[in-house]
């Protein structure tokens, strides 16, 4: 998600032309806004997702900004004071904080689904062979969950190791995510196979030809096995065992495998469709990334790390108030005028 956030402009192709789509800009050259184009759908979805996620993070951090304000002095106190907006921690403010967490989660989940569906439609509404399967939307959504949750697992393991968060990121969290990923990976494999079977059932010659290239020609055939082995065949049997799911090192490396596999899957899914047969030579014109494109990919990976580190430097990545809440209610306790059922943590 972060990579997508940092790349909306590059994603749109020639970003200096955004003005043409958004504003009626250049009538003389017959340029006009056209909502039928996926190039309009995509920015609208990404903008919604970006705005919603950013606002969610900021509003959930208000109590923590207040906590930092109370511990700091000078300019830092001024900045965090402004971000805390005068938060005092009244029961009403806490109640709103709890409700907004539930409301925004419920609102952002359908946006997440729509964003990945719309990204898939960027491809699926075209006529390029192997890009226009009707199953693309849910396939992209489940692929995003598989790769996204695995990336979270990787980052959790790194933070636990380097930030020393052994009490906050515990083996049971890795266990729970591992169980979730088993279900997600099975669903992903189901859609993966559906995509292939749809092509076989439809039996379009162009589709079958590219499909054959994808499975049986170099380098796509090898990449297919990389995808299948790293995204499913190795990690899933590992995660079936509880002791493995609680082994942080194993979870870290298996999630790295899934990251590699899911990135390769997108490459395998999209790029072979760009191949063109040259009629007279019977040669295939294959896409080769140039240095700029390789730089963009490497840079995007580096930017994820950079943004994460910058965020961790100025904001608590795990909400402090939720940790405090968890520590307060570890068992059933007498509290004020009542005995309250405590929050039972796994």
């Amino acid at each position: 998600m972060r990579r997508r956030r940092s790349f909306p402009l590059i994603h749109t192709g020639r970003p200096w032309r955004i003005a043409y789509w958004v504003f009626p800009y250049d009538f003389n050259h017959q340029i006009f806004p056209n909502p039928r184009s996926p190039l309009v759908w995509d920015p609208s979805a990404i903008f919604t997702y970006l705005t919603g996620s950013a606002l969610f993070v900021i509003v959930a951090l208000i109590p923590d900004f207040a906590a930092i304000r109370d511990r700091s002095t000078g300019t830092r106190k001024l900045i965090y004071g402004a971000l805390a907006m005068g938060w005092r921690g009244t029961p009403r403010q806490w109640k709103m904080q709890t409700i907004v967490g539930v409301l925004l989660s419920a609102l952002i989940l359908p946006v997440f689904v729509s964003v990945h569906s719309i990204v898939s439609w960027d491809f699926a509404v075209s006529l390029v062979p192997i890009w226009h399967a009707t199953v693309f939307a849910p396939y992209f959504v489940i692929g995003a969950v598989h790769s996204g949750v695995s990336a979270v697992l990787t980052l959790m393991a790194i933070m636990r190791k380097f930030f020393g968060w052994k009490n906050q990121l515990r083996p049971e969290h890795f266990d729970a995510i591992g169980r979730l990923l088993i279900a997600v990976a099975c669903a992903w494999l189901y859609f993966f196979m559906l995509d292939v079977f749809y092509a076989i059932y439809a039996a379009e010659p162009a589709e079958l030809t590219v499909m054959e290239l994808r499975f049986f020609s170099w380098p796509w055939g090898a990449l297919f096995w990389v995808v299948l082995i790293t995204s499913f065949i190795i990690p899933i049997p590992l995660w079936l065992k509880r002791s493995n799911r609680r082994n942080i090192t194993l979870m870290f490396w298996s999630s790295i495998l899934v990251n590699i596999g899911m990135w390769s899957e997108r490459f395998w899914l999209i790029v072979p469709g760009l191949q063109r047969k040259e009629e007279f030579t019977y040669m295939w014109n294959v896409y080769n990334p140039n240095l700029v494109e390789i730089g963009l990919v490497v840079g995007s990976v580096a930017m994820v790390g950079l943004f994460l580190l910058l965020f961790s430097k100025v904001c608590p990545p795990i909400p402090l108030w939720e940790i405090k809440e968890g520590q307060k209610f570890t068992a059933e306790i007498p509290l004020g005028r009542m005995r309250v059922p405590a929050i039972v943590k796994e």
Partner: peptide, 28 residues
Amino acid sequence: IITYEGTMLGAIIFTILGTLFESRLPNL
């Protein structure tokens, strides 16, 4: 598609504004 995104964006932005309003923030 675009109306759906507009609907969700409006709902999210108003939820945030509503939270601030109901929390009496910013507390000047």
